[in-house]
Design a protein around this nucleic acid. Structure first.
Length: 616
RNA sequence: GGGGCAGUAGCACAAUUGGUUAGCGCACCGGCCUGUCACGCCGGAGGUUGCGGGUUCGAGUCCCGUCUGCCUCGCCA
């Protein structure tokens, strides 16, 4: 049945989404999958689907007994070719749910190209299945228009990126996948090799150092759609392997990189029929943290943080005055109409806030009168009602949620809270796209656990010269020349002006407690390169998966990746990662270490549970 | 590593307080049907209730453990 397919059967004249009434009486050949069959005993209808749409095909007994009986055997997802004549369906028989609904194809020649066993899940829009199943049978899932479209749009987006960068003289250069493990940053995926008994490659977390070295090499303008690898726990927007649009430019300022990125994103959004602002708002890290409690604020809604520390410093309410006295802060957000929340709901928020390090979450509601609070902590703060309501602009029926703690915790909790409430209370326009550049990040952050400073962006980011001179003794006050592009509260990309002198690079390493010796051992190639005429350079990387996810308004990057991994990093389709032969390990000079407290324990326990086990 | 939700036929779901032979729809198989479009009608087959233990006269249901998937905190320069 599947052998000897005539070549003509594969010569499609149209896709299944193309034909219209104006094609009436044409002879056409279509190929595709059977989406549904409706056998009336006499006439048989088939919905034929390909990447482009669905066309109804009709088989009539009059067209020949052999053909008709073959048509009656068709089942879901069989692959067929039909040649036939387009017939206008007329007003009464048209199907306005289909783009091709005004016509049908009267089949003259049906050829079964391949049969299909009943598929593990149904493909029409009325059925769904779990994600694990979709990943295991990804080739079936991909036939769904939504999934098919996501991959097509991903292509349209990468093409738009390439077009812009090509027009601006950027050169696509490939960088190695087998790299050297470097300290700092995420956990590396390591790759052993037969050729080296004790050496390991690492898969690149990003092509960062290679692209900088390309600048030293005079490439001037580089881009790459690069696969990156990080062995960290996964999320809806994080995969162990992901893709970046990686860009680097010589002799460039922040503005040059941001302009280039804006133009890339303008073309990308245009490809997705989405507007991009003439000029994207720019906000410093400090302002973003102060107003939104986040370095990637979502500007689709308000509820900005309001600092009331000065108003409550002398309050009788010890939780507030105490926080201020201990050098902390008291801030709040106003939830419009939030007075409709129940005690149970606000208690739930307090519990939730503990997950971000808060001790709790105080709330109160603005009374109808508009000049007093009721419920929650009202009785403690009503003496300050007038000044608090004036400061916050709260209206009757609003809810105030307070954080009182050290600055870091208060901003984090209220910043997360405003996003959570906006989401849950339908305060977000699903069609809105709010873009923002965040700049002037801190250069260093103190890692209390490790007892040292770590780079907020990465250790190759240049500080502002004036900060470098001013804050040698207080490195956390230094700002870096880094910038992030934010859309709807999601970090889509980031970059920086790079350090281009070996002296500065070593000095920054020293702040990170990387000694000259260690720097020499781990980063000799970079330090060497910087010695030999490295031009000033800057760049940025966009998270391609996230860009596509945001453009298509999807909840997970797994929906825009052809073959993604599960949260534990496995692939249900190929069953990777898999066990390898002892022989392969030996060849690599590797040995498995048995798991600690391994599986013998439960078996012992089971025996103990049955006192007769040993006696029978 | 921590917290949360879920797992019943190929798929999606139901099963009262722990109580008869675990049900329904789609898909599948057989039959009927010449204008359907998620076609319809008649009949049939299909189950280790994720896995392992426990409580009980009796467990899909309760308890413990475990596996898998998803969300999340930590982590992710």
């Amino acid at each position: 049945m599947t052998t000897n397919i005539p070549n003509e059967a594969l010569k499609r004249t149209h896709t299944c989404g193309q034909l219209r009434a104006s094609d009436d009486a044409q002879t056409v050949t279509l190929c595709g999958w059977v989406q549904s069959y409706r056998d009336h005993g006499g006439v048989v209808f088939i919905d034929l689907r390909d990447r482009d749409g669905i066309t109804q095909v009709v088989f009539d007994p009059d067209a020949g007994e052999q053909q008709h009986s073959l048509a009656r055997h068709l089942r879901d997802e069989w692959v067929i070719s039909i040649t036939g004549v387009v017939r206008s369906r007329g007003e009464d028989r048209a199907n306005d749910k289909l783009g091709t609904g005004e016509i049908e194809v009267f089949s003259k020649n049906l050829i079964v190209l391949n049969r299909s066993e009943p598929v593990p899940f149904q493909l029409d829009e009325h059925h769904t299945t779990g994600e694990e199943n979709r990943l295991k049978y990804r080739y079936i899932d991909m036939r769904r228009p939504a999934m098919n479209n996501a991959l097509r749009m991903r292509h349209a987006i990468t093409k738009a990126m390439r077009d812009v960068l090509d027009a601006r003289g950027f050169v696509d250069v490939e960088t190695p996948m087998l790299c050297k493990s470097t300290p700092e940053g995420a956990r590396d995926f390591l790759v052993p090799s037969r050729m080296s008994r004790d050496g390991f490659y690492a898969l690149p977390q990003s092509p960062q150092l290679f692209k900088q070295i390309l600048m030293v090499g005079g490439i001037d303008r580089y881009y790459q759609i690069a696969r990156c690898f990080r062995d960290e726990d996964l999320r809806a927007d994080r995969q162990p392997e992901f893709t970046q649009l990686d860009i680097e430019m010589s002799f460039a300022t922040e503005q040059d990189v941001m302009d280039t990125t804006d133009e890339v994103l303008r073309k990308v959004t245009a490809a997705c029929d989405i507007d991009y602002p003439e000029t994207v708002a720019v906000m410093t890290y400090e302002e973003a943290m102060r107003r939104f409690g986040s370095d990637r604020p979502d500007l689709r809604f308000g509820m900005e943080l309001c600092d009331i520390s000065d108003l409550v410093a002398d309050s009788e309410f010890g939780v507030f005055s105490g926080a201020v006295k201990n050098g902390g802060t008291v801030q709040c957000i106003v939830v419009p109409g939030g007075a409709d929340m129940t005690r149970k709901e606000t208690d739930g928020l307090a519990d939730w806030s503990k997950g971000f390090g808060a001790k709790g979450l105080a709330v109160t509601k603005v009374a109808e009168s508009g000049d007093a609070f009721e419920t929650g902590i009202a009785k403690f703060i009503n003496p300050l009602a007038a000044s608090l309501i004036e400061r916050t602009g709260a209206k009757p029926g609003d809810l105030l949620a307070f954080g009182a703690d050290v600055m870091r915790v208060v901003r984090r909790v209220l910043g997360e809270l405003r996003c959570k409430l906006a989401r849950e209370r339908d305060m977000i326009d699903p069609a809105a796209f709010e873009w923002l550049w965040v700049t002037e990040f801190p250069m260093f952050e103190h890692d209390d656990e490790a007892g040292r400073h770590v780079a907020l962006h990465h250790p190759f980011t240049a500080p502002f010269a004036e900060d470098w001179d001013a804050y040698q003794a207080e490195p956390t006050k230094m700002r870096s020349r880094a910038y992030d592009i934010i859309c709807n509260g999601l970090e889509l990309g980031g970059g920086s002006i790079r350090i281009h002198t070996p002296e500065m690079q070593k000095a920054v390493f020293n702040f990170l407690s990387i000694s000259d010796e260690e720097a020499e051992e781990k980063f000799a190639f970079l330090l060497d390169a910087l010695k030999y005429g490295a031009p000033p350079h800057a760049g940025l990387a966009l998270g391609l998966d996230r860009v596509v996810m945001v453009m298509l308004n999807l909840p997970s990057i797994r929906d825009v990746i052809a073959f993604p991994k599960t949260q534990k990093g496995s692939c249900p389709m190929t069953a990777a990662p898999g066990i390898v032969d002892e022989e392969q390990l030996t060849e690599l000079s590797l040995q498995m270490i048995p798991e600690e407290g391994s599986k013998t324990a439960p078996a012992d326990k089971a025996e103990e549970a049955d006192p007769l086990a040993g006696m029978l």
